[in-house]
Design a protein around this nucleic acid. Sequence first.
DNA 1: TAATTTTATGCAACAATTTGCAATAAGTAA
DNA 2: TTACTTATTGCAAATTGTTGCATAAAATTA
Lengths: 255, 255
Amino acid sequence: MLIFVFMLKEERLQKIIEQIAQDNKVVLDDLSRLLNVSTDTVRRDIKELSDKGLLKAVRGGAIMGSPVHPHFKERQHIDTHHKKVIAQKALEFIKPGQVIILNGGTTTTAVIAALPRDINLTVITNSFPVVSILEDYPHVTVFFIGGELNKHAFSTTGHETIEAIRNFRADVCLLGICSIDLKLGITGFTYQESLVDRAMIETSKYVIALSTYDKIGASDPYYVCAANAIDVIVTEKDPSNADLSGFKEAGILIK
Amino acid sequence: MLIFVFMLKEERLQKIIEQIAQDNKVVLDDLSRLLNVSTDTVRRDIKELSDKGLLKAVRGGAIMGSPVHPHFKERQHIDTHHKKVIAQKALEFIKPGQVIILNGGTTTTAVIAALPRDINLTVITNSFPVVSILEDYPHVTVFFIGGELNKHAFSTTGHETIEAIRNFRADVCLLGICSIDLKLGITGFTYQESLVDRAMIETSKYVIALSTYDKIGASDPYYVCAANAIDVIVTEKDPSNADLSGFKEAGILIK
DNA sequence: TAATTTTATGCAACAATTTGCAATAAGTAA
DNA sequence: TTACTTATTGCAAATTGTTGCATAAAATTA
């Protein structure tokens, strides 16, 4: 007697994770039989889990991936369409050989994820997800800025962080920002992060603010810097958009 | 009866790395038998690993290459039972409220993974895997020590790291070590990590060395500190073992 | 509800990788 | 040198991966 068990996709993914946790590996054909789906489907499942960093896809199956916590690797929420557009635009400002400093947040992480794998760069960051992406970029030197772990933002903050930032000089600062307004300047949602952002800006030659369009003209409680401390604003919209003319007049490049 | 065990290619590569880590060498024919593949395949595997710098191919097999440790990912599965025993013993030395400093490596990571979830601690570390574990321990404050990312050990090293360590004072230092010898002291496999270890020891009141038994009496190229800079050695063996009497006489507690 | 779009799945043709084998070259030791 | 072991190379068979497409199910929208 054949009992056909229908399984939701999520259940399948769950099973695969369990298998990996148990045996350190899974084999395509085994899973195909176990889960009652084609090897194509299993392969697609594995790809999906691999994209999330939960395992490492290899020929014939998958094995356990990197020891870094899956949370750090969640790229689901950073792959929104807007962020991809911003990331792509921001790439034009990053040249091989440069020293880049960047803060935490999904937007900057999206830019890093969009970097060509063989680029030559020095990256200074306080963001754990950024490290987990760059961990196997062979020609990227990563300096991590220490400090107290902020368990929500997956980054470090505090006095040590600020002090450490001041010891670096960067060519480019990539700044994922909360809000930017022509008069109120750049403002942030937490005090600690606003201090980090300010230190990063002060130590960089060229500052690129990454901002989804809805953040423009908004404001938050903590002041980071004046709008004209920024050299470029990258948004997902067309730069000719009329709402942005004020920034252009202030000498800020809009992309 | 022959049980044929299918093995993914990646598993084979991991096995080879493990063998090398254990015996400092591998022999083509042995591997061919052990892994159920032709010598051709083993030779190609060794070439691949050699290209990655994880070992050095020699006529008839391979030996451990330059002083580069096996990648953290590959080391995770080595000797897990012993490490669990060590982790359990080490827990007795960790009291709520303390400030713990610890270096990178699979042994210290195992101790952290064994901590009760609701413990109250301050942890200072330069190890990314440790952060990823503690990330959701609600009552653990984590200070991360910045510096240059070491892509093999998943930790930071370098001048910034040493300087940052000196700004902390810890109650307990948990030190996963490469080798310990009564006369030669503690020695390490890489220069950078040996500097970090030394700085951590110097800033701590009480030092606990975590060592699998086979590392006792061994030595490595880089000096960390004298044996009597250590307060306790935790191994997986019974502390009454005769080989350890020298350490006891030197005033080191063995657990 | 009906129409439309999105998502999931399997299939098939083609491309790429892996693997063992055999012939030959190169290295090693007596 | 000679005999022996190990490496290299090319090749063919088997396996696995990729891509585009068709179908069906599910979700969304009108």
